[in-house]
Design a protein around this nucleic acid. Structure first.
Lengths: 187, 187
DNA sequence: AGAAGATATTTTAGGCTTAAAACATTGGCA
DNA sequence: TGCCAATGTTTTAAGCCTAAAATATCTTCT
């Protein structure tokens, strides 16, 4: 396992060494994507017609609701899994609507902290109650045991995906100088 | 089951009658969404860097690849689960790039049929081969049994979501005249 | 044949999204 | 102290996406 002479084999290599078709994984991925899209589109439509709010705005408010002290834009983009630049306009619109408050941190004038206003907190509470019911409706035919199993299996899948992504990012892990003197520098 | 005196109870009512918290379903939904987003973002980045193609374009080409005779725009929007208007521009860009061919049907001059050109077919084949490997990498830690279980459970979830959406659309199912003379007509 | 409704697509207006470049601020270190 | 890399956010350019209205064509019914 820690044999220093071991050849590094990344996920891709493992997959390539078993050149059978991977149709099963592909079908599973497509089904997973279908489920996610069906639920997402339904929730999006309901949020729009019931509260005249978009899904990204609801998502942003949900993240802030869970973080009483507010969050920085970077923290938000990490949790929402969207790009950094995306948030600027999204936050701006919610600030205009009076749902969000934005303030520059005292210590570090680069970071912007965002939190829900009281009005935003109230609006979110009303939406969240309905939202929870909608999800329950959509998942109704799943029994408790099945819900647990899915939770477990998706947890495993999440781990697998994360592992593959980490492996793909830098196959040169250990056995190298901390960072190495960079030959040049990019402008 | 078919008692004509039965009161119609929709999914929402069932959920409301069990006012316990539905946190389990909510957590499951968030995990499902996280998995889908992780995979989707990774695939999107790989398609971009390896083939300089966007995910929606790949998706569109995949649908056409599976349909040798080509598809109409409505069929495409149904299978891709995107809005109808979305396709106009997407198709246009791929036609410009020489990957797609667009022709008006002879019988019905409203419908536009779209198919891959030979170049499009070749380009897709190359991308699909890589794509299948990427998915296999991401799903690597899932065993065959787990893959099957997930497939089955997600199938059940899909059925549940579809049922809830159908119920929500028209709670007035049977016991009504076929369509009824509409009182007025919307302009 | 002609009107009314249904179906297929496009247009429009607004919003979301990303990647990459630009800008601003901070902290380390010679 | 002053340079420089790292960090946090915004800007930019291009593309994706939706809902709703508009357009075009077909079908049906009288």
């Amino acid at each position: 396992m820690d044999d220093p002479n071991a050849v590094f084999i990344d996920a891709e290599t493992v997959v390539l060494e078993r050149p059978r078709d991977h149709k099963a994984e592909l079908r599973l991925w497509l089904r997973l994507l279908t489920c996610a899209t069906l639920v997402e589109d339904d929730i999006r439509a309901r949020l729009r017609s019931a509260f005249d709010v978009t899904l990204p705005r609801f998502d942003l408010m949900a993240q802030l609701h869970k973080a009483p002290g507010g969050l920085t834009l970077s923290q938000l983009s990490g949790r929402m899994m969207v790009s950094n630049g995306n948030l600027t306009a999204l936050v701006e619109r919610l600030v205009e609507a009076g749902q969000l408050e934005r303030r520059v941190t005292a210590n570090d004038r680069r970071v912007v902290n965002v939190r829900l206003t009281d009005a935003g907190e109230r609006a979110f509470a009303a939406m969240a109650r309905e939202h929870e019911g909608w999800i329950a409706e959509l998942f109704l035919e799943l029994g408790d045991t099945e819900t647990e199993q899915l939770m477990m299996l998706l947890g495993k899948l999440k781990g697998s995906v994360r592992a593959a992504m980490d492996a793909g990012r830098k196959p040169e892990t250990s056995a190298m100088p901390p960072s190495g003197p960079r030959s040049g520098h990019q402008p």
